[in-house]
Design a protein around this nucleic acid. Structure first.
Lengths: 191, 191
DNA sequence: CCATAAACGGCACTCGGTGCAACAAACAAG
DNA sequence: CTTGTTTGTTGCACCGAGTGCCGTTTATGG
């Protein structure tokens, strides 16, 4: 077991440090050199932990996606499509108590920093794929069919809209806003 | 009047040239130096025409947004919300005859090149703002209200989904796919 | 011929990101 | 204790995008 040189730091540790610096000085104003120096590692080493500066902010997104997929897969057949999606998305975005302030910082960075706002699109693609995989069989169409893809895009639209509201209005409840967004979907779609 | 040194080339000319090179070698494989050299201008001058390499692909997006806004503003009050949006988006994406092949190249770049896919999010924000401005008063809410923002996100979801289908299926009709997407909206939202 | 306006473009620099090759720290076996 | 293997760290050189500065070019108007 445990062979080889031990790692100096960890992805998680580095992530926390970075979020602090980003919150202080701003994302653009913090260089990778700053991050590496603050973490006591070489600049080159930073890129072994994260493929890019952008990626620092997304935590272990793939693991989270896995959970989302699992939760959707566990949804009984008889549950209406949007109920299942709503519940899974709510669970996906449920916060451990106390984690809210930090999550606000993270999501504020993601949604208000142009570079990250742009980059997140690439992450969202994976998220949408998970939704589309769930929706397709229930709609009776292929995953790449217009209907399945549209449902995935709509679900993402709900999530992002709710997050924007959450960030814009301090003190609001994320879960309630997500719920409201999914509720509005059926209403506003039919006007 | 026309004082000062005349411009060597133009935004439009440069754009056409760039799209050709991108189509040939790919976006990533074409450097700004390549573009500048092919256009017979200095690298520094390239950045006078476009703020970034990404921006080359989007043509005169702001002008197009202006048209979209104008068309929406001209929509009579009694037209149902989604009918008005659908019609405006269809007109926004109507192609002059013969322009289809080039538009396919452009949109294929935008939707399939990670850097551009990401960058387009920033463009979409402006697009969504136009839709939200139109929708808000008809929904009886503020522009920044959840409902108005959600409608804008949904409209974008329709447009992007339709484009993805259009690109994935050569020979299909963009207008028909857009129409289908807006039609599916009401259906899939209520399952 | 000269002033002015406007576009061009070289130069040096910052920053993100990569490929490579050397080095360091742990452990296991002899 | 030495040696080999494994794995993480790191410096170095390099590339490409993008920027600020500043001098140069090319037109027009007086």
């Amino acid at each position: 077991m445990g062979q080889g040189r031990p790692a100096v730091t960890s992805k998680g540790e580095l992530e926390l440090l970075a979020l602090e610096l980003f919150a202080e000085r701003g994302f653009e104003q913090t260089t990778v050199d700053d991050l590496a120096e603050a973490a006591g590692i070489g600049r080159r080493t930073f890129f072994r932990y994260f493929a890019s500066k952008n990626d620092v902010v997304y935590g272990d997104f793939d693991a989270a996606l896995g959970e989302l997929r699992a939760r959707l897969a566990a949804t009984p057949e008889e549950v209406p499509l949007w109920d299942g999606i709503r519940d899974a998305v709510l669970a996906f975005n449920a916060l451990p108590p106390g984690a809210e302030p930090q999550h606000r910082v993270r999501m504020s960075l993601v949604l208000h920093t142009p570079a990250l706002q742009a980059h997140s699109t690439l992450r969202y693609a994976g998220w949408r794929a998970v939704i589309a995989e769930h929706a397709a069989p229930r709609l009776g169409v292929a995953v790449d069919a217009l209907e399945a893809q549209l449902v995935a895009h709509q679900a993402l639209a709900c999530a992002v809209t709710a997050y924007e509201q959450w960030l814009a209005r301090p003190g609001t409840d994320l879960a309630a806003l997500l719920d409201q967004a999914f509720g509005s979907l059926a209403v506003t779609a039919g006007r």
